[in-house]
Design a protein around this nucleic acid. Sequence first.
RNA 1: GCACCCGUAGCUCAACGGAUUAGAGCAUCUGACUACGGAUCAGAAGGUUUCAGGUUCGAAUCCUGACGGGUGCGCCA
Length: 587
Amino acid sequence: MAPMFRALLTERLQAALATCSLNLPEGFVPAVSLASDSRFGDYQSNAAMVLGKALRCNPRELAGRIAAALQVEDCVSKVSVDGPGFLNFTLAAQALESRVAGLLEDASLGVPKAAQPRRIVIDFSAPNIAKPMHVGHIRSTFIGDALARMARWVGHEVITDNHVGDWGTQFGMILHGWKSGLDAQALAKDPIAELLRIYRTMSSASKTDPALLEACKAELVRLQQGDEENLRIWRECVRLTLEQLQRVYEAVGISFDHYLGESFYNDALGPLVQRLLEQGIATPSDGAVVVFSDGKLPPQEDPFLIAEKDQWKPAPCIVRKSDGGFLYATTDLATIEHRIAQWGAQEIWYVVGAPQQLHFRQVFAVAARLGLRARFVHIAFGSILGPDGRMFKTRSGETVGLLEVLDEAVVRAQREVDGREHGLSEQDRAQVARQIGVGAVKYAELSQNRLTDYQFSWEKMLSLQGNTAPYLMNAYVRTRSIFRKLEQPFDAASATLQLAEPAERALGLKLCQLAEAVHDVLADQRPNLLANYLFELANAYHAFYEACPVLKAEASIRASRLLLCEATSRVLKGGLGLLGIEAPERM
RNA sequence: GCACCCGUAGCUCAACGGAUUAGAGCAUCUGACUACGGAUCAGAAGGUUUCAGGUUCGAAUCCUGACGGGUGCGCCA
């Protein structure tokens, strides 16, 4: 498929610039964007203004020269120079029409494949063993899954890996609790709840009972030394938890290629630290083994330095504790080695909260010194805050369970579905309610800029009105409903697309822009740009639907509009699919 | 103390160097053929983008400094 319009116009602009005998700045690429206002046209470029500044010449005059050199007759009906030197483009109806018609034959919905496919490992979700998933896991899980889907869609080779927390210090408490006060019946009924209970019991009791704390630590040491019984209990905890987690992932339609938890890297940690020492990357310090700054960065940017009273003091990355134990950073380094050596990872994306930023900067820097070459990306996101405006506390404090949120969302969706007439069986209604409920929760997360913190609210998470998943689903359902009304199957081959009405043209233009949205999402890992695009597409469809009757229209117009409906249907369903959201046929 | 993130309409958010009127949704108010599915559409009202400077033809966006909120900073993950 030909490049999307934005990319096409960028190419043409570059070609035009090349003929203008200008002394272009090194690596200059003209920017083309959607017109900020449809009165100006469909696309715009500020290239003349940027160049005008760089080359110290009049931007309007330059824009005029570029416009004269542009060869875009095949796709653009009007080029104009406006304001301080904007180049505005109005697409030719014919180009738009053939492009939209092309969507019907294109399995990738107009999204071009990446020129250079990469092998990308995406690390997301990462729940802890013996703890339920809570709302805090929503962001990593849904953002990671959506990014994985989009990266695959454009042709990257994606490996998803759930780096579960299966080897933390919490196991000291759990092991002791398991041995001293496990309720076998409760465990059978709800394993995670029971594991959480014994953990909390031990955790709070050991705060006032030093002997108990020691006993818990001793259990942990025995586990780490390979004690048979403790290993058996630990494996059982992991198995029981994963079983439960699977149900959550199934409910939200997410799967992983691997579940390599922290424990998988246990045997690699000792040798890794040994190598760090041998290569002079790490040094002993206060009985621990740490990595200090290598002094190659200015102190402001050095992740191993921190300022204190006008002085830069070391903020080392600890890779081995003074008691010989290993840490988060050690495991992460071993994980990087594994992903590069075993999987040939060229990029590793971590969908992990913003508070871990320093940690990753350190880990990536150590990895680089170890000669581990890959593009590391920390896809940070803001925190979900509790009602008090502070972070939900994972460890001690109360939070809202992910399953609880999903269940409530489905219940609310079910009430809506049950209250409507659409000829669905009871079984179908339950299925649709699930799709709506889960979709609403996913969309609430994905439509938001990932970096901003937000306060958890049932209202917001479960809303079915306005800019929500059901709004997009409803647009899709309306497209399907029209086709169910036809007496005969629609013969797309005999129809000709014409974008005559403004609402038709606006919809057609939107339909061509999925590629641009997906491209923008992957450029800086922001799924909300796709959510936003889909909202605008649904909006354009609803507007078209009100303005342009389909079934009652005269034959050739009717056929053309049916094509538009079909294209909308495909792009909406495919776009929602890229967010990990299913679109029901009726609702 | 230092570093990072954030501060936009009553509320929740978008826009991340572009255009006379900074966009949506919710809430409020008006309208729409007893609806090709009204979970819709058209419209009104609502903001000196926390404040003060600066750079720029052009700033919510970049820089500086305040103020306010969050997070992180040697043996948790």
